[in-house]
Design a protein around this nucleic acid. Structure first.
Length: 498
RNA sequence: GCCACUUUAGCUCAGCGGUAGAGCAACGGUUUUGUAAACCGUCGGUCGUUGGUUCAAUUCCGACAAGUGGCUCCA
């Protein structure tokens, strides 16, 4: 301790205060001696090929009320080739950045005139989104969900009842206050989540145990005031749409419903081939004031979640302090192109809101009972899901969700009528085909089709018109030669659904 | 919100104490073309905003805004 006093290192001294009575380790490198739990490399000589990556401010001991230290990030490899590979990998990752590809492929935009963190879905992005919604909606129908639509604002008192307002006022846009024509003051909140609205749907009529489970789904747009420094492309925004649903069930049904909800989430990740980590998000018992509900409720809910995880054979880890204030949850976490982790899907158990909103059902004992609520969103947010999807595919969307699926490219004006006829035929069959009838060289048309990452280009020249064929070029593969139109349609039919 | 950096044409980017330049795109022509970008011409910018220093600021300094990388937060 004396050593660090002489050095005037207040930070290490503070750490030492906390370590009183414990053994500590010091590492030495030349004239530099560091207090660290370890492990350090024995000597900087082991760092053969270093590169400094970035510099950033970081709060001392992770506390935003304390001073900011400058943190320098760097990496070192034992071999030069490994460093070069690493740099190359990073460059490749940057090419996948959804903000870059989102612009190039005209999927979305963010306009400062509209507002930061408020993404606009351009026609191409909207197409992808609608296809994702359609995919999920089909599953919801199979799984007994009912869709609802609720307003974008709600009375502030509803959020006082739910407890969201006291907990998250900082993370919401400030209330809309006004006095109506009778002189009564009202306060509304731009909705930061859909839950309380759905609870109102549930309690709009009495329920029998025979009705349960009731599964209410909505692609619900919500607005949250994220800190300005947190905004990032489509990953972290102030306005987004959750593929939300709330399942109201009896306690006996809880586990089966959790399994169903997790199964749906896994279907989503499997469909898109995404690698996902499952986190069981539990409360931090040392911080009980951050959570609603009593110990017995939390212990039970966490136990149930873990049992389901075990029974389903999920490969999971536990995140202490990651729970919602009303209950523990399963969170499904994926990485973006540069390795940052984002939560996409979530499945949450909630015993608190049924109490707060006095939700009821009549059991077979003719007595009133509280249902349990499962909150779940397999995509999480459509915006964030798209950001991951773009980076996952590097913009090369599979056929079924590609905004444009087929480019039809006549070589000269003579082939335009044939090309128009083919385009119409494809469009009539429900394919998203685009005719490029400009007076450009076919090389140019192909280049642009490839840059837009259109899965197929159908080149039509004199030969194809004469033989009633098309020359097929597959994105990322190349020229596949001439095929009959029928054969092409067969290929497309095979790719139509997922 | 905090720390650092960045902000020049629709896009990607040069440049600089003496009021700006390229490629692509757009537009007008010419070209009718066989698997990744034909040719010629035209248009296009109060150099993020706002103060200051200076004879003179897009350039230097400050503030603000937005973006980027982190931190904190994330129902």
């Amino acid at each position: 301790m004396k050593y660090f006093q002489e050095k005037g290192d207040q930070y290490k001294l503070e750490l030492l205060e906390g370590f009183k009575g414990q053994s500590i380790t010091l590492y030495k490198q030349g004239a530099f001696t560091d207090l660290c739990r370890g492990t350090h490399v024995p000597s900087t000589g082991f760092l053969k090929f270093p590169k400094l990556l970035s510099i950033a401010g970081a709060y001392w001991r992770g506390d935003s009320n304390r001073q900011v230290l400058t943190r320098i990030y760097g990496i070192a490899f034992p071999k030069k080739q490994m460093l070069e590979d690493f740099i190359k990998m990073r460059e490749e990752a940057e090419k996948r950045d959804h903000r870059k590809l989102g612009k190039e492929l005209e999927l979305f935009m963010i306009s400062q005139t509209i507002g930061g963190g408020l993404p606009v879905w351009l026609p191409n992005g909207t197409l992808v989104r609608r296809l994702l919604e359609e995919f999920l909606r089909n599953e919801l129908i199979k799984r007994g969900y009912q869709e609802v639509i609720t307003p974008h604002i709600g009375n502030l008192n509803m959020y006082r009842t739910s407890g969201h307002y006291p907990y998250y006022a900082d993370g919401m846009f400030p209330p809309i206050k006004f006095t109506d024509e009778t002189g009564r003051e009202e306060e509304y909140l731009l909705k930061p989540m859909n839950c309380p609205h759905h609870h109102q749907v549930y309690s709009s009529k009495p329920h029998s145990y025979r009705d349960l489970p009731i599964r209410l789904a909505e692609f619900g747009s919500v607005y949250r005031y994220e800190q300005s420094g947190e905004l990032s492309g489509l990953s972290r925004v102030r306005g987004f749409t959750q593929d939300d649903a709330h399942i109201y069930c009896t306690h006996e049904q809880l586990k089966a419903e959790l399994v169903n909800a997790i199964d749906l989430t896994q279907l989503v990740f499997k469909t898109f081939g995404m690698e996902v980590k499952t986190r069981l998000s539990f409360r931090d018992p040392a911080n009980k004031e951050k959570y609603a509900g009593d110990d017995a409720m939390w212990d039970q809910a966490e136990r149930e979640i873990q049992e389901v995880a075990e029974e389903m054979g999920l490969d999971y880890f536990i995140g202490i302090g990651e729970a919602a204030f009303y209950g523990p949850k399963f969170d499904f976490i994926v990485r973006d192109a540069i390795g940052r982790k984002w939560q996409l899907g979530t499945v949450q158990v909630d015993y608190v809101m049924p109490e707060r909103f006095e939700l009821e059902y009549v059991g077979n004992d003719n007595a009133k009972h509280r249902p349990v609520i499962i909150h779940r969103a397999p995509f999480g947010s459509m915006e964030r899901f798209l950001s991951i999807l773009i980076e996952h595919y590097a913009g090369n969307f599979p056929f079924w969700i590609a905004p444009v699926q087929v480019s039809v490219l006549p070589i000269t004006d003579d082939q335009i009528p044939y090309a128009q006829e083919l385009t119409k035929r494809l469009t009539d069959l429900g394919y998203r085909a685009k005719l490029d009838d400009r007076a450009e060289k076919v090389n140019r048309k192909i280049a642009e089709s490839e840059q837009k990452k259109v899965p197929f280009a159908l080149v039509i020249g004199k030969k194809e018109v004469e033989s009633g064929q098309v020359a097929v070029r597959e994105h990322g593969v190349g020229d596949k030669g001439a095929m009959s139109v029928e054969a092409v349609l067969e290929v497309f039919a095979g790719l139509k659904n997922a």
